Amino acid sequence: MFVTELRFECFADTTIETVEKAINAFLEALRANGQILGREFAVAFNDGEFRVRLLLPEKTSLANRHSSPWVKVTLAGLTAAKLLAPREKFIGQDINSEASNTDTPSWQLLYTSYVHMCSPLRNGDNLLPIPLYQLPATFNGDHKRIIKWQTEWQACDELQMAAATKAEFAALDEITRTDSDLFRRGWDLRGRIEYLTNIPTYYYLYRVGGESLQAELSRPCPRCGAEDWKLDEPLLDMFHFRCEPCRIVSNLSWDHQ
């Protein structure tokens, strides 16, 4: 992934409040389309310019060809706020993040965790993140629903990893059970992505707990009850189970690895 800086200059009299709303709307539209990563963006004002540093999946993530209808509307909103089109200054490669996928996957999956800022759609052949703007829009012209699902999944993951409050158990249910609201929304998104890309797309179901290693090895698919979903060899050294009809992959319980 890569770091870039956007600079916004005023071409006429305006107000800080007007500029703030226009820039933040533009950044939110880019985020909803997967063109920038992260949740919070510090916009600085100095020497007559507004500047913000952003993390991009690819060097070309901000190219106009990737822009959603919402991005184009908010870009016009910058002009209405008396701002010139943003100038981009490439900073360099981010050494603390993964490279984005460049190969066509034979299969893909929805997979994230609270430590990941990248796209939650991964190439099943190498687990590299696939920039969302490379897909056809999933709903309403962009990928906001996928980003929202990812944010909720990460929040639940952070709660259960902290293991400090009763909220841990409710959060764990959301990411481990097939009857949870989070699973239902994510699994539906998975189906939408598979339909749009015509690439088999799976949902990662987190697994922890279990009575014993033997019981874990013989557990059935939690959605359909199939008993033959245990793989002979784990995929990507991580996924020990895969149910083809349910489009679910899962790990051997972390308690028994």
Rank of each mutant, 00 (worst) to 15 (best):
L135A: 06
L135E: 01
L135S: 01
P136W: 06
T138R: 03
F139M: 09
F139C: 07
N140L: 10
G141L: 06
D142W: 04
D142A: 01
H143C: 13
K144H: 09
K144D: 00
K144R: 14
R145T: 07
I146M: 05
I147T: 04
K148H: 10
W149G: 01
W149T: 03
W149H: 04
Q150N: 10
Q150H: 06
W153C: 02
Q154A: 07
Q154W: 10
Q154Y: 12
A155K: 05
A155P: 00
A155T: 04
A155S: 05
D157G: 02
Q160S: 10
Q160L: 14
Q160T: 11
M161I: 08
M161S: 09
A162Y: 14
A162H: 09
A163T: 13
A163L: 13
A163R: 13
K166Q: 12
K166V: 07
A167D: 12
E168M: 15
F169A: 14
F169Y: 15
F169K: 13
F169M: 13
A170H: 10
A170Q: 08
A171R: 06
L172C: 08
D173Y: 14
E174T: 07
I175D: 01
T178M: 01
T178V: 09
T178P: 00
D179E: 09
D179P: 11
D179F: 12
S180C: 07
S180T: 08
S180P: 11
D181H: 15
D181F: 14
L182K: 03
R184I: 03
R184N: 12
R184A: 15
R184H: 12
R185H: 07
R185K: 10
G186L: 07
W187Q: 03
W187S: 08
D188W: 10
D188H: 11
L189Q: 06
R190M: 08
R190A: 02
G191C: 15
Y195R: 06
Y195H: 08
L196D: 01
L196H: 11
L196E: 06
L196F: 04
T197L: 03
T197H: 10
N198Y: 10
I199P: 00
I199Y: 03
T201Y: 04
T201I: 05
Y204E: 08
L205E: 00
Y206M: 03
V208W: 12
V208S: 09
G210W: 05
E211K: 11
E211G: 11
L213N: 05
L213D: 07
A215E: 13
A215Y: 06
A215R: 15
S218A: 05
S218W: 08
R219C: 02
R219I: 00
R219H: 08
P220L: 05
P222W: 11
R223Q: 11
A226R: 12
A226Y: 03
E227H: 15
E227C: 12
D228E: 13
D228V: 01
D228G: 02
W229K: 02
W229M: 08
K230R: 12
K230Q: 02
L231N: 01
D232Q: 14
E233D: 07
E233G: 09
E233Q: 12
P234F: 14
L235V: 14
